[in-house]
Simulated assay, not measured.
Amino acid sequence: MDLQESRAPSAVDGDPAPNPHATAEQVEAARHDSKLAQVLYHDWEAENYDEKWSISYDKRCVDYARDLFDATVPDSEQRRLPYDNALELGCGSGFFLLNLIQAGVARRGSVTDLSPGMVKVAIRNGENLGLNIDGRVADAERIPYDDDTFDLVVGHAVLHHIPDVEQSLREVVRVLKPGGRFIFAGEPTNAGENYARPLSTLTWRAVTNVTKLPGLSGWRRPQAELDESSRAAALEAIVDLHTFSPADLERMSRNAGAVDVSTATTEFTAAMVGWPIRTFEAAVPLGRLGWGWAKFAFNSWITLSWVDANLWSRVVPKGWFYNVMVTGVKPS
């Protein structure tokens, strides 16, 4: 299946319809077609993605998105804000761009994703916020915009899904205006994946087995939902193609033609605790945990993120942190 041909970039009204429930046969076919896997998995997750990852479009996530931007982009660049026209690559539900627009980083923007379901949700989220955005279903290795179109290109947790990351970065540089900047955040590091993924897997197995015990059935999700989550997890293992060292992303960005390239990393202990927490939340019935749990989980992450930024960043090697961010500029 050639996704680039069958899912060619188009206006939203002409985009393929989302497929929210992949069959076992489709999952099996996706094992041999990474781009099909991307579409199936992200269409599957689209409608519940914000809830799954505790994404919001209020002050909490507006501040978080702006903090990522500020941690990656040099202070001297802040004088340029806001950028006039921005693009989010692999937009998901629109988390990064929509919150950056609300944070004053950009005035308006466009969203693209290989998943029709994600583009649909991102546009809907933008409309609900009253923001000026448009969207297209598009392959990140072939961005459907002209040269020199955008002042800023952003992405969050997208590069590790793209088969040819360097080709995608060349496309990013192409669609940027001279002097325009890109920033990609939320990419897993080589070291971080070695502790985050096993912690998540152990948590899932522990919760789904413990909740089989007498008296704990109220904490167990219906078996049909657990089976569907297992199929989604099988797809997730396929769509996560890469992990990176900071040096990897710097090298690929320079090879793609960018200058003023730099990286930053975030989340060390915050990831070690955050992944089990998020997995536990996904393993129990929706609404079972309540507001008190949500407040505890968020405050724990905030506290550990502060510890990571102010203590561990001084003694722990950069590459040991879970998330890496990269930024660069198109030569002017």
Rank of each mutant, 00 (worst) to 15 (best):
L3C: 14
Q4L: 13
E5D: 11
P9L: 05
G14T: 12
D15P: 03
P16M: 03
P18Q: 04
A22K: 10
E25L: 06
A37R: 00
L40G: 02
E45L: 04
N48V: 10
D50M: 10
K52R: 15
K52D: 14
I55Q: 12
I55N: 12
S56Q: 11
S56I: 06
D58P: 01
D63K: 06
D67L: 02
T72E: 06
Q78W: 10
R80T: 08
P82I: 03
P82W: 02
C91W: 04
L97W: 04
N99P: 01
G104S: 13
V105S: 11
T112E: 09
L114Y: 05
S115K: 03
P116H: 13
G117W: 03
V121H: 09
G126A: 07
E127T: 14
N128K: 15
A138E: 01
P144F: 06
P144M: 11
D147A: 15
D147G: 09
L152H: 00
V153N: 01
V153S: 03
G155Q: 00
H156W: 04
L159W: 01
L159T: 00
H160I: 05
L169R: 05
F184R: 00
F184E: 00
A185I: 11
P188M: 03
T189K: 03
A191Y: 08
Y195Q: 09
R197V: 12
R197I: 14
P198K: 07
R205P: 04
V207Y: 07
N209D: 12
V210P: 01
G215S: 11
L216E: 12
R221W: 09
P222E: 07
Q223M: 09
S230H: 15
A237S: 14
I238F: 10
V239I: 13
D240N: 09
D240M: 12
L241N: 10
T243S: 11
T243Q: 07
F244T: 02
S245L: 08
P246G: 01
S253A: 13
G257H: 11
A258K: 07
D260L: 08
T265V: 06
T266G: 05
T266Y: 05
A271P: 01
V273D: 11
G274C: 09
F280S: 01
V284I: 02
V284R: 01
P285H: 05
G287H: 12
G287L: 00
L289C: 05
G292T: 11
W293K: 01
W293E: 09
A297M: 01
F298P: 00
S300N: 08
W301A: 04
I302P: 06
D308L: 08
R314D: 12
G319R: 08
W320T: 06
T327R: 12
